[in-house]
Simulated assay, not measured.
Amino acid sequence: MSQKVTVLGSTGSIGRQSLEVIAACGMEAAALAANSSVKLMEEQARRFRPAIAALADEKAAADLRVRLADTNIHVLSGLEGVLEAATISSADAAIAALVGMAGLRPTLAAIREGKRVCLANKETLVCAGPLVLEEAKDYGAKLYPVDSEHSALFQCLEANRDRGEVKRLILTCSGGPFYGRTRAELAGITVEDALKHPNWSMGAKITVDSATLMNKGLEVIEAMHLYRMPVEKISVVVHRESMIHSLVEYCDNAMLAQLGAPDMRLPIQYALTYPKRVPGPSAPLDLWNCGPLTFGAPDLEAFPCLALALEAAKTGGTAGAILNGANEEAVAQFLAGKTGFLDIAAKVEKAMAQVPPVQNPTMQDILDADQAARESVM
């Protein structure tokens, strides 16, 4: 069970909820890192008193340094500052919750210190899965999933550790705010529309990914690496209520499911306390009042991002980095009002067609693929 924790991405949705768990479970925050949210970082630093508070944005870090001048908190800046927070020796665990490709190098840095890494940044495995897992093995780091779906799979797989008996992994998907709409009906979707997730409160980027179903595609690739399963053994089912977080089907056709209220604090806590379970702040699931549970198939025609992710999963190599880089850039354009909702998938498809994938990639190959994909959709 972790006692001192570094939170990478502390001002984001997962980071804020991680700090709630840390406080409720009597843990300490050894270091906090984020991008540029000065005011919130100051509040968090004053409450949790970490040894390090790092902001990637140099200007924001300079402002934070002035704000925290009356404390003994060491304020750091830039990528180097975030990396120092990730590797602080006093922490035995790191929550990797920085958004997107920006989380890859800090996550690897924590892995190379042999820490327990609670992985909320799915892009790390999507872009560099084999490399990350090899590093974890070499440095003796333990990876535990924070995504609710992957935490559910992890818990269900604990019932039988012989992976040869697993028939398939089943990732549940809320379907996002536009479930049931045709492709034609999605043409005029606005940013405001896309940010109205039916069940979860998340950051803007992941909420848009949930609306396009790209988030579920990224999770398929992540599951391939985390559980060493071929994509053919991973299925997606739409489960609107988000009560069942994922399932494992075994070779005898028995299925195990993990249920819980849609509260990210539960998987965050389990990643920090595994193999122990302790009381925490997450909400209980009220089975008497949660209503019927429904299931359906995803519509790959209306939501082609999921199909593109499955294609990248089959291709392997740097295909995941190409998919992710193009998607990050396209979603940023959509959130800025510079492109349409349906254009996100079109831009990703364009990048996948234009940027050739490299098999057995080095870190530089992955970074180059990411950059090329971004440039192809600008």
Rank of each mutant, 00 (worst) to 15 (best):
Q3T: 05
K4S: 10
K4E: 12
T6S: 15
G9V: 06
S10F: 07
S13K: 02
L19Q: 11
E20A: 14
V21K: 04
A24I: 00
C25V: 03
G26E: 14
E28K: 11
A31P: 06
S37N: 15
I52Y: 05
A56Q: 15
K59G: 13
A60F: 10
D63F: 05
R65T: 06
H74R: 15
L76K: 08
G78F: 05
L79F: 00
G81Y: 08
L83K: 09
L83W: 07
S89E: 15
S90D: 08
S90H: 04
A91E: 13
D92C: 01
A94W: 08
A97I: 09
A102G: 13
A102M: 14
R105I: 13
T107L: 12
A109W: 02
A110T: 10
G114L: 02
L119E: 12
N121R: 02
T124C: 14
V126R: 10
C127V: 11
G129L: 09
P130Q: 07
A136C: 12
D147M: 05
D147Q: 02
D147C: 12
A152H: 01
F154L: 01
F154Y: 14
C156W: 01
R161L: 14
E165T: 15
K167Y: 06
T172K: 03
T172Q: 00
G175K: 08
G175A: 11
G176K: 00
P177H: 01
R181T: 15
R183W: 05
A187W: 03
G188S: 10
I189P: 00
V191S: 08
D193V: 00
L195E: 05
H197W: 09
S201R: 13
G203C: 10
S210L: 09
A211S: 14
K216I: 10
H225L: 01
H225T: 05
H225Q: 11
L226W: 02
I234E: 04
R240M: 12
S242N: 10
S242C: 13
L247M: 15
V248Y: 07
D252C: 04
N253I: 01
M255I: 15
Q258N: 11
L259H: 04
G260E: 05
G260T: 02
M264L: 11
M264Q: 03
R265V: 10
L266F: 02
P275N: 14
P281C: 10
A283M: 07
W288M: 13
W288R: 14
N289R: 08
P292V: 13
L293D: 03
G296P: 04
G296E: 13
P298I: 05
D299P: 10
E301H: 11
A302S: 14
C305Y: 01
A307Y: 02
G320P: 09
G320N: 06
N324I: 03
N324D: 01
G325S: 04
E328D: 08
A330N: 04
A332L: 09
A332H: 11
A332P: 00
I344R: 05
Q354K: 09
M363H: 03
D365Y: 09
I366H: 08
I366V: 15
A372V: 07
